[in-house]
């Protein structure tokens, strides 16, 4: 969607934020739009420590400082650095996003831009077991107390989640956790941590989805 609008695009990566500025923008237009965008997304950045790179036009050191100040003031985040991303990476970035994405039939695993490849776990994740995966994890079974799943993408538990799950472990705040029975000791999404309220010990299956809203983890029935 953002691509279509042809405006400035914000994109998260492992270390922080990538700002893609269209080639035909000049500095003042870019600055104004970044300011507006950051303001709208301020709650998204609050308290986070981020490295920022930008792509598209090249800014002078003075202009870079100005952008950095805007980000600093308006986002509430701590801006560790701001620099131009090198061209080779930019090209790779553009090449990866063709206008029409063909449905790739040769890929054996599910893949999306932010969830990565997918690992299926076909057994109960028992106490003392830790599963780490760069991508999303689907558990066909329960995650028991003392069991842990750490995934850079989403985590789906087709069973009861009673242990600890960390989705978006590399910082992707769009990651979600889904379970048929959500009774975890703790869940984490990116840097956010949540514990479940005590009590509510119903044994019914009641699918729930946890994701970040306004900087905190929210759970909703689905």
């Amino acid at each position: 969607m953002e691509n279509e609008k042809k405006g400035i695009v914000f994109k998260g990566n492992n270390e922080g934020l990538v700002i893609v500025i269209p080639d035909d923008y000049d500095f003042s237009k870019a600055k104004a739009e970044i300011e507006e965008k950051v303001q709208n997304a301020a709650r998204f950045f609050r308290g986070a420590k981020i490295k920022v790179v930008y792509r598209g036009i090249t800014l002078t050191p003075e202009e870079e400082d100005e952008i950095r100040n805007v980000l600093d003031e308006k986002s509430g985040a701590i801006i560790e650095s701001l620099s131009k991303d090198d061209e080779s990476k930019l090209n790779a970035f553009i090449a990866k996003r063709p206008k029409k994405v063909p449905v790739s039939s040769h890929k054996l695993f599910f893949s999306s831009d932010d969830a990565g490849p997918c690992k299926f776990v076909r057994s109960t994740v028992r106490s003392g077991t830790r599963i780490e995966f760069d991508g999303s994890v689907v558990v066909i079974g329960d995650v028991n107390p003392g069991g842990e799943i750490v995934a850079s993408g989403n985590v789906i538990v087709l069973g009861a989640l009673r242990g600890m799950v960390h989705a978006g472990s590399e910082g992707n705040r769009d990651s979600f956790i889904y379970a048929l029975k959500l009774k975890p000791t703790q869940i984490r999404i990116a840097e956010a941590i949540a514990r479940m309220p005590e009590g509510s010990d119903e044994n019914k299956i009641c699918p729930e989805l946890a994701r970040i809203k306004d900087g905190i983890i929210e759970v909703e029935q689905v």
Binding site: R126, S127, G128, G146
Partner: peptide, 16 residues
């Protein structure tokens, strides 16, 4: 007891 069940779970994983 919760702690005994937790350890039993660990043992089941190791047995498997």
């Amino acid at each position: 007891e919760v702690s005994a069940v937790r350890d039993a779970d660990r043992i089941i994983g190791l047995l498997e």
